[in-house]
Every structure is written in C-alpha cells, then in structure tokens.
Design a protein around this nucleic acid. Sequence first.
DNA 1: ATAATATGTTAGATGCATCTAATATTTTAA
DNA 2: TTAAAATATTAGATGCATCTAACATATTAT
Lengths: 217, 217
Amino acid sequence: MGSLTEENYIKSVYALSQATGEVYVSELAKKLDVKLPSVNSMMKRMATKKLVAYAPYKGIKLTEKGKKEALAIIRKHRLAELFLVKVMGLGWEEVHDIAEQLEHVNSSRFYERIDELLNNPKFDPHGEPIPDSNGKIHTKKRTSLIDLAEGLTATITAVTEDEKSFLDHLNAKGLQIGDVVIIKKRELFDGSITLQHKSKKEILLTHQVAERIWVEV
Amino acid sequence: MGSLTEENYIKSVYALSQATGEVYVSELAKKLDVKLPSVNSMMKRMATKKLVAYAPYKGIKLTEKGKKEALAIIRKHRLAELFLVKVMGLGWEEVHDIAEQLEHVNSSRFYERIDELLNNPKFDPHGEPIPDSNGKIHTKKRTSLIDLAEGLTATITAVTEDEKSFLDHLNAKGLQIGDVVIIKKRELFDGSITLQHKSKKEILLTHQVAERIWVEV
DNA sequence: ATAATATGTTAGATGCATCTAATATTTTAA
DNA sequence: TTAAAATATTAGATGCATCTAACATATTAT
Ligand SMILES: [Mn+2]
Ligand SMILES: [Mn+2]
Ligand SMILES: [Mn+2]
Ligand SMILES: [Mn+2]
C-alpha cells in the first residue's frame, strides 16, 4: 500500500481523467493545491510504481493497477459516507470531510462489516455509485437538471459535489435525493432554473447549482 | 495538531512514563520499533513544541500540554474500540489494530456522535477507563490476579493488553470481562494459577497471562 | 579506581513531499 | 511564422522521519 499522499494523488488522477481518459499536471496541481513541480515529482514516482503512464509534456493516464487502487479508495470513501449517515446519524452535508480520512483506513475487516451492516449498498448518500469489492463500478449516462426542457418531471438521483457548502445550500432550498421536481422555467439570460417541488414550493436554482444535480426523467 | 508519527510518540511517552513519571530513550525506541537516534531527534523536536521536558541523558517527561494531547488520543482510541464492538459487532480481540488508525481521525463531530451513541461510556472493551472530553481520566488502584490468595473470589474488570494474540488466548480459555473466578491453586514453582470459573471449568493460566488480568475482590 | 558494558548523542546520509527560481517545451496570437 | 503566453520540467533547497557509524556519558562489575 502507498502513502496517504499517494492515495490522494491516485484519487485525483482518477477523478480528473474520467472525462477524457487523461489529466494534465496543472489540473492536478490545482485540485490538490500544490505547485506544479510537486505533481511532476510525484508522477515520476508513481510511474516507476506502474500506477500511471506518464511521458514528459504528455497527459497522465492511470494504469490498470492504478485504476484498481483508485476504485478501492473510492469504495471505502463512499461506504464510509453512507455508514456515517445511516448508522451514525450524521447529515449528508457533513460526511465527506470525515470520509476523506476514513478512506485511508487499512482494514478489510472494518469495511467488510460496514458493507454487511449496510447490506451491500449500491449508492452513497449523494447518489454516487459504490464500486463493488472487485472494483466494478456501475456507471450509467446521467442527465443534468440544466438539460431538461420546461414542463418535464424528473427525480433527483445524485449530486456531483459533496462539499459542505454546496450541500448546505441544497438543504436550505429543501432539496434531497429522491425528490420529484417539475421544470417550471428556464431563464435564457443567466441559465437559472425554477423548479416546482413536491412541497408545492417553487425553487430557484442558478445554473452553477443546477448543473451539479443529476436527474432521471 | 501534530503528525501521525508525533501522536504515536506522545502516546508511548504517556504509557511508558505512567509508572515512574518518566521514560528513557531506549524504552521508547523499543516500544516504537525505531533506533535510538530517531527517538533522540524526535524528543528534541517535541521539546521545542513544549510537548515533553527533555534534558540530555535524563528521563523524558510529558508536559501538561503533552499530557492533554495524550489523553485526547487515548480517548479517541478507546471510544473507537468500544464503538467497533458495540455498534459494529466486532470482537474485542480485533478492534485494537483498527482503533490504532481511527484514533488519528481529526473530527470532533465523529467522536461526539460515537460518544452519544454509546451514552458517554466510561470503559473500553478491555476494561480500560475512557478519559472524558476534558482529559480527566478515572484511575483507581488495581489488583492483578497474581496478587490474590488461594480461595478468594474475584471479578475480572480489565486486561492490560489488547493485542490480538493475547485476547485470542483468553477467548480460547473462555475468559471475559465481568467473569467471576475463584483462585483454586497458586503454583510456587512457576507462578501459574488455576481458576475455578462460573462455567464450572477449571482454567490454568501462566504467570505471564495472569499478571495482565485485573480483578476486583 | 579502572575497565567493561550499557545507554545516549552527534554527524551525516536517505527517501518522501513539498517549495522557489530557472529553464524548456508547447500552444496561441500577432 | 515568429513572438508572446501558457504549461511543464529541472535544479536545488527545506522539513520530517528515519537510518548507520562514530563518539560521549553513565552505570556496573572487577
Ligand atoms: Mn465524498
Ligand atoms: Mn459522496
Ligand atoms: Mn487498544
Ligand atoms: Mn483497549
């Protein structure tokens, strides 16, 4: 097993290379809040460990070994989040920071028990899929709130952000996973969206917020 | 907050200086499985941080600040152990190693919840007292099994060792916290002790094992 | 009291993870 | 197509945590 720092790099490489298959040094530096040479140096080390494929001035890709490690950490992160909500009674907005630490706990027994207590859960409290113990992750194409036409009815299935500030904002608006909403109005000017909520209340979301909410029509 | 390594040094200084009020470089090196110069170097760093009082060639003492930190870590360790047993259903023999990791989790929320769910517990699964959130620890004089005369009846209140191998041994003998035992025989030759157990079975313990078991008469 | 042994410290090196400053490459714009 | 801007790499330094080898002090045994 690698160090805590290495595990965090692997997670970031995984997350940022999801879309295009590769990630750039500068993107990693920004995400991890370190300078470029730190990333450069770590990528060299991780390349010798066969965790990433990396050639100077080229994009960084995870190897199969790297991908497996990434998914193992993500599994632990998401199991931890769900455990904190379901078993320990914490709010979905306060579990991410704790899971950032628990994901580095090295104990198969600990995570086996969490998995059992939660009955092999498939989704974390933010609607993100939990990879299984073999690293298989169930990714289906998702639709964002901003891609829905006016008048449509949809169910919120996930949010792509689990930072406290964002979730506090959704809590204040009264939105949760599983809520059914109707698209009332899409503003052309600023991309904001007005929803009709089951609670009869109308909810206004900025584009920035709406694009982070995934739905099923 | 200090590093994980520093936290482990603080814990060891606390544990090993319990009896006499101070601990020697060589004892720490042995306990932490590092060489003498590593300890020496760390003690200097910790002294500049006012965590220990340390003069060359003299015993090492924790400062009040250091003691407070030590007790905070011990509190987290013991709360974690009890949580793993009571809430997560793990055995008392398998929780120590996991708690060694969980004790470094930095989240007051996490430990507040554990404390609540367990109703402000006073003892961990091995009978050790849990310091309160102000660092107050309830230490009473304890009697070891080896100090009891033949014929006496006593209740097991704690064990001073929470390594898996030791607890596996006690499990095999069928001994638990709370069990009532009668001292049947004390062997002069090797210090071993024969107990009469509630289960009617006779249990033979070596001196090495018996001295780690605390009782109340 | 001196020698032998045990214990502790200093000096100097290593790997990890980071930084700044200098340099190189790639991309974009004039 | 050259110059400017953006990105990336290298060189060299720092702090943490560790080590080995050499030296110093304290304890104990003769
Ligand atoms: Mn998260
Ligand atoms: Mn999540
Ligand atoms: Mn323990
Ligand atoms: Mn314990």
